[in-house]
Design a protein around this nucleic acid. Structure first.
Lengths: 207, 207
DNA sequence: TACCAAACAAACCTACCAGTAGGATTGTTT
DNA sequence: AAACAATCCTACTGGTAGGTTTGTTTGGTA
């Protein structure tokens, strides 16, 4: 087990370079030469760590999922009310999308179907389940209108967020994503908070 | 000079085949060989009509925009109330997305940045303007709550629809798109219709 | 010192792919 | 039917990409 630290560094440099390239241009428009040049690593070193371009793609997806998992765990371990948790998660996720090329690349690759030999794991169900769970808790605590159908609402939240992310990516490279998420919640909450709304905060993030 | 029928048929077969392929696999993952094989046409015939793969892509985008324009014009020339027009447009557009490979391909290519040498024209602004216009009319007629900010709402509608389209594409190949749009409106309208809501219909389409 | 994971380097292979060239065919016009 | 333009066909070209191979070098570890 010699020399692990250096190996970890190069591995991460490769993943990061690949993520940046994939986020910019997509998987297919990126060549391996682009990647190892950007990483400042030789072809041999790259192929020592990843035996194919696709393996690199899936490694990025893994890293993205792990980042999402950590974010969720971090918010879920607070004692905020459920609706506030959901909102916090969405804002922190938006912020991560803005700042983290691995997350950006992951999101882009997920919607590039017909490109990979194995199917990409789709995150929408997991997000929807999480949302539904938090909405149910909110409803039980009277912090969400009774009439709201939790499953429909969860689906809508996930798809609205996805829409904000896609449109923001295409028109501004994710620059206005947090703003879009903020407006999303303003309009979404109008219809679903009970009379005498509990106060909900929209967190702010500095990069 | 006379343009021959055969040529028109060939051209359309090529555009259709390309659209189907691009919709399935994306622009880069599709080879010209895929396209002319699918179209039942030889390479030479294809290159007689389109001098490059990219030209084919832009021809598809043009066709998509034209389809959208016709749809809009058709709904706008009715005498439905403005909010109903907006809803009708969204449902008919959803239906077209489900059934028309040219529209599917167009939507997919729009989000494939860094892939084409010229930038693709982005439709989001136009959709947003149209929505804002109809929402303003609705508000003037008292068919939309005063407190609603029309521009934010228009932005949100466009991005929610886009989200529904993307998620539906990825998880079901657009099969459940109309359902998603229906649920989108149910939840969206909750917060913005004035007390004593005017009735709004969700149209149905058979394929 | 011997060893071994990790990295470098460069040549090489194979497959594929967008695009071209020039000839053949078809339809229209005179 | 001759002439001509529009359309189509087949074979070929140049280039690139992913991945392999072979051999060498580095530097921490036992």
């Amino acid at each position: 087990m010699a020399q692990q630290e250096r190996a970890v560094r190069t591995r991460e440099a490769v993943v990061r370079a690949a993520a940046e390239a994939f986020a910019d241009a997509g998987f297919l428009a990126t060549s391996m030469a682009d990647i190892f040049a950007r990483a400042g690593v030789t072809k041999g070193a790259l192929y020592f760590h990843f035996t194919s371009k696709e393996e690199l793609a899936f490694a990025i997806i893994d890293a993205e999922e792990q980042a999402a998992g950590e974010l969720i765990e971090s918010v879920m371990s607070t004692d905020s009310p459920p609706l506030q948790k959901l909102i916090d998660i969405s804002f922190r996720w938006a912020h991560l999308i803005q700042s983290n090329p691995i997350v950006q690349a992951g999101l882009r690759m997920i919607i590039e179907q017909g490109t990979y030999s194995r199917p990409m794991p789709l995150p929408y169900n997991a997000w929807q389940e999480l949302s539904a769970q938090l909405l149910t808790q909110a409803q039980e605590r009277g912090e969400l209108e009774r009439s709201v159908d939790v499953r429909s609402m969860a689906e809508f939240i996930v798809s609205s967020f996805t829409g904000a992310q896609i449109v923001s990516q295409v028109v501004s490279g994710h620059k206005d994503l947090v703003q879009r998420v903020e407006r999303m919640w303003q309009l979404l909450l109008k219809g679903i908070l009970p009379p005498g709304n509990p106060i909900v905060f929209f967190p702010r993030f500095e990069s």
